[in-house]
């Protein structure tokens, strides 16, 4: 799975511009799905299985977009001003490298400002090596993602955009490993999550599921002087979400997920995320409402170019997802 994750994180796809990453996902799924379609907002939806008497229509949502930048202005000297796509902290920008959708590369520089002042994104620019506006290869509206090589540290891996490509890999792998299922499972590889769960909103309406699960990363509280404190840790197993700031997971599903994990001997941890949202909200609030939950993977340094997850957590997230989808879903 590491090679798939590497391929996914190395393919640019900021929110709204997920066409290249969508093609990679499509290829990775190959013949394992019964049906594949792309909806109006560009989400890829792969169906597997048909609904039996004990089964439900289940939506699994892992978002394939990533945070990125969009060009707002090219000045007369060829320096490129930008705005953020999704939540980007200026802390993680200066000196960073970016790659545009056409392969153009650049580095992020900073206006001369006071040393101990936190800069804002408007104090920064991308330098693509141009000498003037005329020879600058990028123009207003062009998008880029961060560039940082994938790093395999053995038990841990580091990359940009593990949020949420690691979950996309988990969903692809679960789709492949899923043998018999009583359910009609729609694996949604959703777009525009980072700008407001937009792809999952329309995909959920289109799929009209009976039950849904998001798969996403969550904060990990196991770094020095973590504040606010959070009880999640790398390597403690996939996290079963109770709530985040966007939605409250269906408590019936939470209990059932816990019992399923225990029954299968899969390590798990409970998650209460105080800042951050997931596609689970979009699923829960579509149409007349849908019971929704979320399987999370603890991740350090989220939205920096060097996000870190634990390999065992990733593997166990796949196992948990396959386990959940292989049996009838209890909603009592």
């Amino acid at each position: 799975m590491k090679s798939l994750i590497q391929k996914l994180v190395e393919t640019p796809g900021p929110s709204g511009f997920e066409y290249a990453i969508r093609d990679v996902i499509h290829e990775a799924i190959g013949e394992h799905a019964d049906e594949i379609r792309v909806d109006a907002l560009g989400s890829l939806i792969a169906r597997k299985g048909t609904k039996t008497e004990q089964g439900l229509r289940v939506m699994i949502s892992a978002h394939i977009d990533e945070i990125g930048l969009m060009v707002t202005h090219v000045d007369e000297h060829g320096f490129v001003r930008f705005t953020n796509i999704g939540g980007i902290s200026p802390l993680t920008c200066y000196g960073g490298r970016v790659v545009f959708m056409d392969g153009t590369r650049g580095v992020i520089g900073l206006d001369g400002i006071e040393r101990d002042k936190m800069p804002s994104l408007t104090d920064m620019f991308i330098d693509v090596g141009a000498t003037s506006k005329a020879d600058c290869p990028v123009k207003v509206g062009d998008v880029c993602g961060f560039e940082r090589p994938f790093l395999d540290l053995g038990k841990r891996m580091v990359a940009k955009s593990l949020d949420d490509r690691v979950a996309a890999a988990v969903a692809v792998e679960a789709l492949k490993r899923l043998g018999s299922t009583p359910h009609e499972v729609h694996f949604v590889f959703s777009t525009q999550e980072e700008v407001g769960l937009r792809g999952a909103t329309t995909a959920a309406y289109g799929v009209d599921p009976d039950v849904g699960f998001a798969v996403d990363v969550t904060r990990s509280g196991d770094t020095p002087r973590s504040n606010p404190k959070m009880a999640t840790a790398l390597g403690a197993g996939p996290a079963i979400k109770v709530r985040d700031s966007s939605f409250i997971a269906d408590p019936r599903l939470v209990d059932w997920m816990v019992q399923s994990a225990q029954a299968a001997g899969i390590p798990y941890q409970m998650e209460v995320l105080e800042a951050g949202g997931t596609d689970g909200r979009a699923i829960q609030l579509t149409r007349g409402g849908v019971p929704a939950g979320c399987v999370s993977i603890a991740c350090r340094y989220i939205h920096s170019p060097s996000e870190m997850v634990d390999s065992d957590d990733v593997e166990n997230a796949v196992r948990l997802l396959v386990k959940l989808l292989s049996e009838p879903i209890r909603l009592t």
Partner: peptide
């Protein structure tokens, strides 16, 4: 590109997109 929003912000998320 940047801030602000228009009616498109509501429209594009309606129904199946």
């Amino acid at each position: 590109p940047g801030g602000g929003g228009t009616d498109a912000g509501a429209i594009h998320k309606v129904r199946g997109g």
